[in-house]
Design a protein around this nucleic acid. Structure first.
Lengths: 217, 217
DNA sequence: ACTTCCTTGTGAAATCCTTCACAAAGCTAA
DNA sequence: TTAGCTTTGTGAAGGATTTCACAAGGAAGT
């Protein structure tokens, strides 16, 4: 929009994972703020709510451009729009879920997902009892259809929610089918090519972190 | 002058969260290795499986002492024992679950929890329909009993799996009841005293991290 | 014993991330 | 317009974490 010295080559600068995490948190805060009708927010406001520092907020944002007004802060509406764009949430992402167990089911019904632009377009399982069942409007598909369906439906992100001993095999097939982003709930480190983005949600690791914290007292 | 006290004073050295995370991952790898009958593992072995570097593995471990044998590597059995001790998994931890919804339920039946030394001893919910129901051997308790039960049962860790607008209030009560470790599944940043350890499991943040990664191509 | 090979443990260097601190910019009021 | 406040954006400093690289320890064979 402006012709400032900013040159906004988003691709060039390396953004750390922690920065991206915080951006996601700022986004959520801003959504809350939008609800309250507050129109601007300072880096100090955001920092306090996000549990970080004002300088950190400004640094995080400054990697992408200048979005604030000095003396005023950031426009909630504008920063919301900007963050959504930065995070790639300005369009919907097609998600497939592999594993229709308890965790898969919890995830499927998790409203925040759909609301944030992630739509689960396919569910796979190996269990013949589950295959064919309807989850919402989508039928649980047989595991063997995975590769073809992932391609045909142009799935962007796959959520792996299978037992840990099956996870790597699923990951291999998913990668072979051209998917480049995986959210892994299985308690294993998946080995994938560097071009594939993986995020792990590992409850046991977090619990053990708490156990460690409690023990070091 | 100064009593340059380093040596093996475990409490004194500051261990980073990322180190603790990796220790937990090494522990899991070693459990797998134990199953295969492999008796020793080098830092290189562990690093490859954990998706890190050999130097990192050695640094992580060296913060706690010297557990390896030069030329040989680490004894799987011994390192297992040591890591369990370091992480505080040499005894069981009493866990309470607040929120008997989908996520709570998935967690409750998650076998890996119990297996790793975490036993869920109490479940709370506000919904009168759920209160009184039996989950495994434990009855779902009314939310209002939370403070007293947490104290009476000497709960170490509370898992918060309630909607985000209720999470902070639950956290406040839990902290007031003397609990010092919280695993939070609600998509909010809890504000707690510094003495309380909090770990967040936030699926939306992870998904948005993937969206960002996909967008930056 | 000696030699060779392997792998640890660890200072030092390099890299990455956060905090500091302040000039510059925007707003309001007179 | 100028003065007084406020808050951003950002180099530079400071800290933390990771990687490097190698001396020293240990095993196994001769």
């Amino acid at each position: 929009m402006n012709g400032k010295s900013n040159d906004s080559d988003l691709r060039a600068v390396k953004i750390s994972e922690s920065t991206v995490r915080r951006l996601s948190i700022y986004l959520r805060l801003l959504q809350d703020l939008e609800g309250t009708g507050q129109e601007t927010a300072s880096s100090e406001d955001l920092a306090e709510r996000a549990g970080t520092t004002a300088a950190q907020v400004r640094k995080d944002l400054s990697a992408f451009g200048s979005f604030g007004k000095r003396g005023l802060g950031y426009s909630v509406a504008e920063l919301l729009r900007t963050l959504r764009e930065i995070l790639g949430l300005d369009h919907r992402w097609k998600v497939a879920l592999v594993g229709a167990g308890k965790i898969g089911s919890a995830l499927f019904t998790y409203r925040n997902f759909q609301r944030r632009g992630f739509e689960i377009d396919a569910v796979f399982d190996t269990d013949p009892v589950k295959v064919g069942q309807l989850w919402g409007s989508s039928e649980i598909l047989d595991d063997s259809l995975m590769e073809t369906e992932l391609r045909q439906r142009h799935i962007d992100i796959v959520v792996i929610a299978v037992p840990s001993d099956a996870a790597q095999a699923v990951a291999d097939r998913v990668v072979a089918a051209g998917v480049e982003a995986i959210l892994n709930f299985a308690p294993v480190r998946l080995r994938v090519p560097a071009s594939v983005a993986v995020r792990n949600v590992d409850m046991v690791v977090e619990m053990e972190g708490l156990a460690f914290a409690l023990s070091s007292r």
